[in-house]
Design a protein around this nucleic acid. Structure first.
Lengths: 232, 232
DNA sequence: CCTCATTCTTGCGCTGGCGCAATAAAGCGC
DNA sequence: GCGCTTTATTGCGCCAGCGCAAGAATGAGG
C-alpha cells in the first residue's frame, strides 16, 4: 500500500526510527490511504481513536472545541508528519478534530494494525512515547507563554514557527505556504482576529511582513525574532 | 526497598497496571527512596532526566520557568502519583522543576533500572504512553481554557481540581490540604496574585469559600461549579 | 465582467485585569 | 511576648486588548 519511494521518507520519521527493513515493510504492508477535499475532516473530537495518520500531501488543522463552541487551533500538520498518535492508547477518543485545509492525502493504520505492529516491533511503543513526551513539553511551553506573555510576542512566535514549518522562499521573502486567515492566527495565539489584524497592519507598516487575504509573507525574520524575544 | 504494604498501592497506579506479581516484585526490587525537606528540589528544569519518581508522602510542585524568570505552576503532585515520566525517554532533560512544598518522601527508579524494566515488562511502555497521552489531553484542555476563558472561571476550576485532589473534610467545608499562596494560585491560572486576592475576597463575601494565609476552604462547591461552568 | 460571499481593516468606546504602593494580618524564631 | 519576615488586602490609575459596527478589499463563480 506504500510505494517503495515512500519507504525512504518513512525512515526519516522519528516514529519509525531504529526499525529494520523487514519491520518497515511490515509497517507499510498494513497501511491504507485516504484522501480528503479541503475542509473535510479526518476525524472529529470525541470519536473513538481508531486510526493513526501520516500525512503524505496537503495540510491539516488540529482543532480543539469546548462545550460552548469556543475553539483553538492547536497545530498545523504538514507532509510527512504523523498525527493522532493517541490511537495507540487503549480505549482513547480523539481529543481534537483534524480538518484538511487543502486537498490532502494521508496514510493510516487501523487500531488492529497498530496492535499487531506494537506486538511485533518492540521499539515502537518507545518511539511513540518519545513523540508524546515532545508534545507534552511543547504544550507546557505554550501554556507558560500564554499565561505570561503578551499577544505581540505570541503572534511573532507563531509566525516564526509557521515560517519554519511551512515556509517557502519567494522573491519578497518567506511565504507561509498555507491558507491562513486572521481568525486562524487568533485561534493559535489565544486572541481575537481584530487584534491580530491590527498587529499585522502595524508590522506591515514597519516592513517586517507583507500580508494578503489568508496570506503572510515574512520579509525580515529578524524583526519578528526581536519581538518574540522581547529585545529593544 | 518497597515494603510489602506498598505493593497494594502500586497495583492501583495506572503505570503498573496489568503486571504480574513477579513483575511487580521486580519493579519494587529496583526502587530506591529519597526524602526531602520542604522547599528542596527533586530535580531542576534542564537537568538530564535520569529518575522516575513515585511520591509516597508529602506534596510536590511542578514548576516551569522561562528564560526571563517568569514561571508557572503546572501541577501539584500528591501521594501515590508518579512524576517525571519523561525519564523513560532516551536523552531527555526535565522540562520542569519539581519542588517539595512539605517534607516529602519519594521512591525512584534510575535510568538503568527503567531500561531494564522496559526491556523485561512489555506492557510498561504502553502504560507510560497512556499516562503521557492523558497529560497531553489535559494540557490541550488547559490551553483552550487559558486562551478563551476569563480569570474567574479558571480560578474556580483550579480550586475545584485542587479540592478533589487534595481536599480534606473539615467542619467548615473542604480544606485544600496544602500550603497554597495567592501567588501559587496566580501561577496556576495565568494571572497575578492581586487579581486572585480580589476574586477570593469577593467569593468569601458571598460565602462560597473561606480563606486564610496559604489556605482555602471550600464551603459551597456548587458556587464554584456555577462559576466554572459559567451558569446564571 | 459583475455579483456575492468571505475576509480584512479600522475607528471607537469600554472593561478586565495589571501593577504599584501603602497597609494590614499572620506566623516564626528567639 | 516582641520583632521581623512573609503573605494578603485594597485603593487607584492605567492600558492592552476586546467587541462592535461600518466599510473596504479580495477572490470565486457564474
Amino acid at each position: 500500500m506504500i510505494d517503495p519511494a515512500d519507504l525512504a521518507h518513512l525512515k526519516e520519521i522519528p516514529f519509525f526510527q531504529r526499525m529494520s527493513d523487514s519491520e518497515l515493510r511490515k509497517v507499510s504492508a498494513l497501511a491504507r490511504a485516504r484522501s480528503l477535499e479541503a475542509d473535510e475532516f479526518f476525524y472529529l473530537q470525541g470519536d473513538p481513536a481508531e486510526m493513526l495518520f501520516l500525512l503524505k500531501a496537503g495540510r491539516v488543522k488540529l482543532i480543539q472545541n469546548s462545550a460552548d463552541g469556543q475553539q483553538i487551533l492547536l497545530r498545523m500538520i504538514g507532509p510527512w508528519s504523523l498525527f493522532a498518535v493517541v490511537a495507540l492508547v487503549e480505549g482513547a477518543v480523539y481529543p481534537v478534530s483534524a480538518q484538511a485545509v487543502e486537498p490532502s492525502l494521508a496514510l493510516y493504520w487501523t487500531k488492529n494494525a497498530l496492535m499487531e505492529l506494537v506486538r511485533e516491533i518492540p521499539g515502537l511503543a518507545l518511539n511513540a512515547m518519545q513523540m508524546m513526551s515532545e508534545r507534552v513539553q511543547e504544550y507546557q511551553d505554550r501554556l507558560r507563554e500564554l499565561a505570561t506573555e503578551r499577544v505581540e510576542r505570541r503572534l511573532a512566535r507563531a509566525l516564526l514557527r509557521l515560517g519554519s514549518q511551512a515556509g517557502k522562499r519567494v522573491p519578497e521573502g518567506i511565504l507561509i505556504d498555507l491558507p491562513l486567515s486572521r481568525q486562524d492566527l487568533a485561534e493559535m495565539t489565544g486572541t481575537t482576529l481584530f487584534t491580530v489584524s491590527r498587529i499585522l497592519s502595524q508590522w506591515e507598516a514597519q516592513n517586517i511582513i507583507l500580508t494578503g487575504r489568508e496570506k503572510v509573507i515574512i520579509r525580515f525574520p529578524h524583526g519578528l525574532v526581536r519581538i518574540a524575544e522581547d529585545l529593544p
